[in-house]
């Protein structure tokens, strides 16, 4: 089932190893005409639940050919509908429990190998990939770095990461809007991650959905750029509440925009008083040393 609109199979998710299996789409005219039917389902269940076992269902559905028709059937058969046979089973189960269990398994895997796993989240275009490119260049001599890239389509980001000098695995979520723990579990089976290394997971650019899905990371890093509004933390509180560090990127553009760093920090701290902040420009390198220090001092156990 597609993660966004429930309209595809799970095969919408693809995992690529750049430079190895390079399964490019070569632009063959292979387009699935993927139109959502507007099911105007008027289910008029005339459920007269009298227990002489006569009830009428009337379904009205409007099909695409716009020829509405009705089905009706009388059921007069021996319809054992005894309510005494019903059992109410108490479950009290967290709906994200399966994701949380898988995330916890991923976390144990990272702990066992002393891998520092950081989940990088942001809206699209905040500069996550550029930050990672610079980080790889500067930290790869200190610690081995691996990257899992999440995007809806293309291998572009994984290619950039490999050029910077770190093995990368690309997860294409198809129409999905976030990574979940099972996708990371699947990626870990394909990706041989060294002990004592750092694994960056670059989540799909989206400040809403990734907040709800624990991947098993040690810490979550939210990136915002000064070209976005300084009220972002108030508009997307879940993401800021579940993150440990906030990187404010593109600081070199501060003279040209109305973004107020102090206001952003104030807003974000009303939601998450423990949130740490580092202001950087990945392009010029300003402030990046503080970020590298932060990464290297994290102890994943």
């Amino acid at each position: 089932m597609c993660d966004t609109c429930g309209c595809e199979g799970t095969d919408g998710v693809k995992i690529h190893e750049p430079g190895h299996t390079h399964s490019h789409d070569h632009g063959h005219g292979h387009s699935h005409s993927h139109h959502h039917h507007d099911h105007d389902h008027d289910h008029n269940h005339d459920h007269e639940h009298e227990h002489d076992h006569e009830h009428e269902h009337e379904h009205e559905h409007e099909h695409d050919n716009m020829q509405p028709h009705t089905h009706s059937h009388d059921e007069t058969g021996d319809h054992s509908h005894s309510h005494t046979d019903q059992k109410v089973i108490s479950l009290n189960m967290n709906i994200l429990s399966q994701n949380n269990i898988t995330a916890q398994m991923n976390r144990r895997f990272f702990e066992g190998r002393k891998v520092l796993c950081l989940n990088m989240v942001s809206s699209p275009g905040s500069g996550k990939t550029t930050i990672l490119e610079k980080t790889i260049t500067n930290l790869k001599s200190a610690r081995k770095i691996f990257v899992i890239e999440g995007d809806q389509q293309t291998l572009l980001d994984a290619d950039r990461i490999e050029k910077a000098g770190a093995p990368a695995l690309q997860i294409n979520t198809g129409s999905g809007c976030h990574l979940d723990a099972s996708m990371i579990d699947l990626a870990l089976k394909k990706f041989d991650i060294d002990s004592n290394s750092i694994l960056f997971i670059e989540n799909v650019g989206n400040l809403v959905c990734p907040a709800m899905f624990d991947l098993g990371e040690f810490k979550r890093v939210v990136v915002i750029s000064v070209t976005e509004g300084d009220d972002k933390p108030l508009k997307y509180p879940y993401m800021f509440q579940t993150s440990h560090l906030c990187i404010i990127n593109k600081s070199d553009l501060l003279p040209y925009v109305d973004f107020r760093v102090d206001e952003t920090i104030k807003h974000a701290r009303t939601i998450n008083p423990d949130l740490e902040f580092i202001s950087v420009s990945a392009r010029t390198g300003e402030g990046m040393d503080r970020w590298y220090e932060w990464v290297l001092k994290q102890n994943s156990r």
């Binding site: 089932m1 597609c2 993660d3 966004t4 609109c5 429930g6 089973i89 479950l91 189960m93 709906i95 994200l96 429990s97 399966q98 994701n99 999905g176 809007c177 976030h178 979940d180 809403v208 959905c209 709800m212 899905f213």
Partner: peptide, 22 residues
């Protein structure tokens, strides 16, 4: 739009629990 994936989780969860009890 994560409501769709959450709804999928619910159906999977209920299905698992119902199957356990035949």
């Amino acid at each position: 739009m994560h409501e769709f994936s959450l709804a999928t989780e619910v159906i999977n969860l209920v299905q698992r629990e119902a199957q356990k009890r035949n």
